[in-house]
Amino acid sequence: MASQETPVSRRLKLIKHVIIVCSGKGGVGKSSVSAQLALSLHASSPTARVGILDVDLTGPSIPRMLGLAGHGVHQSSEGWVPVYADGAEARLACMSVGFLLKKKDDSVVWRGPKKNAMIRQFLSDVRWGELDYLVIDTPPGTSDEHLSLLEHMALVHDRLSAVIVTTPQAVALMDAMKCLSFTRTVSLPVLGIIENMSGYVCPCCGEISNVFSTGGGEDMARRENVPFLGSLPVDTELVTLLDAAEGAEGKDEKNSAQPNESAERSFRLLARYQRTSSADLMKPIVDVIMGTLPLVESSAQQP
């Protein structure tokens, strides 16, 4: 029974590692960390192939952050074609419900079963191709989306791992703890905790203010015996970069078919990202993640 193939496992056969980015709390920076993770993994080697899947169905942020807002998804005989953030290079594939909406302000008002079906389609119908890493950005909480993801990917469970994002406040840490309990219940290996929004540097005098307190993520990691991957301060440069990333809105919808222009734009996003201070802080985090992935997965294979 365990060797039974499902459309999802067939599709995910060529994906080496799946990293689920989660946090119990909303607005702690799951999507921006996912985007950074994808960009950094993409930059880690000239041949790395990365996918990013946004399963936050009622609040998709990834398209805007990667400057892909307004793109549509194309059908092919082999399934849905993901939107490539780097154009012709096609090493950064992206899929989100945001690409399926007719109008960007349309609300997706769905109950659980419909969300479940959509997630299954994202996993089984998207032509991801061969990927080194698939980063999955999740909505806040521990509910339908999370359960569906694990259910549909049960056959590739030994390739799954999670990164937990939190901010230093007690309120956020409490939800992060719930998220950690969730990963333990479903035996999902945790690569580590990232503390986001840890301090803010005043652009005027350079003083560091702990807007949302500090150190809580590291304490939690120590207490719970989970690796602490690092802290990322509030980086206004990054906020602006991910916020204002130029979309293809207003332009011809077939923009993605014009590789040159798209590639150039995305190249700019990557180049600008790599100039931010967050990119430097993210690099050691990504190195740790790339280093521990094989270890975590090999231990997962031995029950």
Partner: peptide
């Protein structure tokens, strides 16, 4: 407070 509620919609 550590316990996670893993519930689907219904």
């Amino acid at each position: 407070s550590r316990d996670a509620i893993m519930w689907r919609g219904p």
